[in-house]
Design a protein around this nucleic acid. Structure first.
Length: 690
DNA sequence: AGCCTCTGTCATATG
DNA sequence: GCCATATGACAGAGG
């Protein structure tokens, strides 16, 4: 088996391949999506076929070089192998797949287009376009390895990745072609290099009158970095229904596509100069019949990315970065949920899977529209499509597995993932940073799966949360923008959500690197285990909203959301259950908090009352003591008086026989006790009668 | 192993 | 009567 080592990330490539081959036994059409659309640079055709149960000649395809493009590995990787004159990777791949008897379901524009092209015997066209972008990227050298830098042709337009990501890149390369364009950076050194690159771009632009505007733009970009981060953080901290308002201004970046010096038209011309990568082979007439505007002077201002995004809006949810949100249409901008819905409709409505209807996103490629489309738009949207297709693939791969759903619903554990601590606060900046570090790790070096933070996988149920947009944005800003490495994160994200561990286990054993598969499987299991029950349920039913979103959404927004989106009864029921449980959970937490407060208050009251009781006891004792003192004094006085009293005979008066009685007029009388008691009784009777 | 605490969930009460 | 919230009770997880 021949092996074409991926040139920038062995770990990432293997990971992708692991997933790919793990899926091979299940749905090869899904694999094709992966194979054709995923960013990992080099895929092993042999291994893919081996996964499908047959062998084939070694054939490496690099569908998506680092800079984002399509092409054969032999074109992109000079050390890979000799170019195959019959190289039609996509067409050959399809033929191989067809030979395997596996139905190929074109679910994406790219593969649908591919199928269409192959069916029309024009796989060259497919390859042409796909390879064109790849060649464009390889020509710049960033997408290729360092070894490729020698092959890169600066005169061909430079690195579209760098050019697309920065307005200065193109001009800079003209000024300093000797600067290595290949940036195989590790995660740690990337930040410093970003700053250095920015500084160098400044210097380069200072001497270029052509790039004054670009310089200003970059300066503004640099100055606005903290503010951008701040704005993003603010926006990210808000729920989607709140962030809708704040994201609007960010979409104001024009559709003119003038922010980069490297336009798609340049790319087109550049590619046309390379026969092998030219677009001539594209059977546009067959593929895009009746939909293409070839007019060079056409005033059609349709953005290519817009067209794609219009069709598949999951990108906007997943890549809601300011650098690309301006491409969002107002309708699609309303909320990520709508994007989710459109994704669902994309998968459920059959007509959207048809090539004829699904390929409209490519139409603006041809013609003057390309003037307004930057290469970054093209490549980025291709990349976005990848994420979309990954999600679609994951949907298709997992489907509505009743066993899984029932299993999830039967699971006794309870953890809806809602906590007062809000550990699932997916909008935190730290999460963004951590995710980005993962992304960088995936691109620059072998990524250790187990070191990945679980936060990287949280967010929207089913991996539809728009959080990664911020990551993409950061990468755009930092390292020439293309999110090829980011795609790895999305691979992790989506596949960890949707892959069945059993599927991984069943297929991983067939390959020598099944250890990595096990690693991935363990990672996926851990990830799934960390999901709450409701999150897993929602994932299983492909609820296009995060649990947190469902719970925290206001009633009106919630009802509006349910009415706006097409959801099955089961989904609606689950969403309502999630909301009910989430609300009740919060209510229970509040209730316990209140109860605790009440208990604490009662304890305080008890302490206060006990203190008062002690005080009263002391007062009572004092009063009793005073009373006793008074009694003693009265007793002493009584005996003192009787000791001085004498009767008529001069004898002392016996105090046991007489008592002192005070009359109402103040006189004191000595009366016998019998009379005193009888008199008291009579007075009491009189008093009672009165 | 038993106990305790915390937490989620359900059923029911309350406003 | 419906809905959101509050609360008691129960069960599971973890220390």
């Amino acid at each position: 088996m021949k092996y074409l080592k991926p040139w920038w990330s062995d770990g990432g490539g293997l990971l992708h391949l692991t997933i790919l081959l793990s899926l091979a036994g299940l749905r090869l059409d899904v694999d094709l999506d992966l194979y054709l659309l995923l960013p990992p640079p080099t895929l092993l055709w042999d291994e893919l076929l081996l996964a499908g149960g047959r062998t084939s000649s070694a054939y490496a395809l690099s569908p998506f070089p680092a800079s984002g493009g399509w092409g054969r590995a032999d074109q992109l990787h000079p050390k890979g192998r000799e170019p195959d004159p019959e190289a039609e990777p996509e067409g050959r791949l399809l033929r191989e797949v067809c030979a395997l008897g596996v139905p190929f379901i074109p679910r994406t524009r790219v593969d649908a287009w591919l199928v269409h092209s192959v069916a029309a015997g024009e796989a060259d066209g497919a390859h042409g376009l796909l390879g064109a972008a790849a060649a464009a990227s390889s020509a710049g050298g960033v997408g290729a390895s360092v070894d490729d830098s020698s092959q890169a042709a600066p005169g061909d337009g430079g690195d579209p990745r760098a050019a697309a990501s920065s307005p200065l890149a193109a001009g800079e390369e003209e000024k300093a072609p000797a600067e290595p364009t290949a940036q195989v950076l590790d995660a740690g050194g990337r930040a410093n290099q970003e700053n250095e690159v920015l500084r160098e771009r400044h210097e380069a632009v200072d001497h270029s009158s052509q790039n004054v505007e670009n310089e200003q733009r970059v300066s503004a970009q640099e100055k606005s970095l903290p503010q951008k981060n701040e704005d993003e953080s603010k926006i990210a901290d808000k729920p989607d229904w709140e962030a809708e308002k704040t994201t609007e201004p960010r979409n104001e970046r024009s559709l003119n596509g003038t922010e980069t010096a490297f336009s798609l038209e340049d790319l087109f011309q550049m590619l046309s100069s390379q026969p092998e990568n030219s677009l001539e082979g594209i059977s546009l007439g067959n593929t895009f019949t009746g939909s293409i505007n070839y007019g060079i002077n056409s005033t059609h201002n349709v953005n290519f990315s817009q067209a794609i995004s219009h069709d598949v809006n999951l990108h906007e949810a997943m890549l809601l970065c300011p650098d690309n949100t301006f491409r969002r249409e107002p309708v699609a901008r309303t909320s990520p949920q709508e994007s989710f819905l459109q994704l669902n409709s994309h998968t459920t409505t059959p007509e959207q899977t048809l090539p004829g209807t699904n390929l409209t996103g490519f139409l603006p490629l041809v013609g003057s529209q390309m003037r307004n489309v930057t290469s970054q738009d093209l490549l980025h949207d291709l990349d976005i499509n990848i994420f979309d297709d990954i999600s679609l693939m994951s949907l298709a791969t997992e489907g509505f597995d009743p066993m899984e759903v029932s299993h999830l619903f039967e699971k006794p554990d309870s953890d809806s993932g809602l906590s007062l601590n809000s550990s699932h606060n997916s909008t935190s900046v730290t999460k963004s940073n951590s995710s980005r570090s993962v992304c960088e790790g995936g691109a620059g070096c072998s990524s250790d799966l187990e070191s990945l933070s679980h936060h990287d996988l949280e967010g929207a149920v089913g991996g539809y949360y728009p959080e990664p947009s911020k990551l993409c944005h950061m990468d755009h800003r930092s390292d020439s923008g293309f999110c090829g490495d980011l795609a790895f994160q999305h691979i992790y994200h989506n596949h960890t959500y949707h892959l069945q561990p059993s599927a991984l286990e069943s297929t991983s054993g067939s390959f020598s690197w099944h250890g990595k598969s096990q690693k991935i499987s363990k990672y996926l299991n851990d990830t799934d285990r960390n999901l709450s029950r409701d999150e897993r349920r929602a994932k299983a039913l492909h609820i296009p909203f995060s649990v947190d979103e469902i719970v925290r959404m206001p009633v009106d927004s919630f009802n509006n959301m349910l009415s706006r989106h097409y959801l099955t009864d089961l989904q609606v029921s689950l969403i309502r259950d999630i909301r009910r449980r989430g609300k009740n959970k919060v209510a229970a937490q509040n209730c316990r908090k209140r109860k605790l407060d009440i208990i604490l208050n009662l304890e305080d009251d008890l302490c206060n009352l006990q203190a008062k009781k002690e005080i009263l006891k002391r007062e009572r004792a004092q009063y009793n003591k005073a009373i006793n003192t008074m009694k003693q004094k009265l007793h002493d006085l009584y005996h003192d008086i009787f000791s001085r009293l004498r009767d008529d005979d001069g004898r002392p008066v016996n105090p046991n026989q007489y008592v002192l009685q005070c009359s109402q007029d103040g006189s004191v009388l000595i009366v016998p006790k019998e009379l005193a008691t009888s008199g008291h009784k009579k007075e009491n009777r009189k008093g009672k009668r009165k």
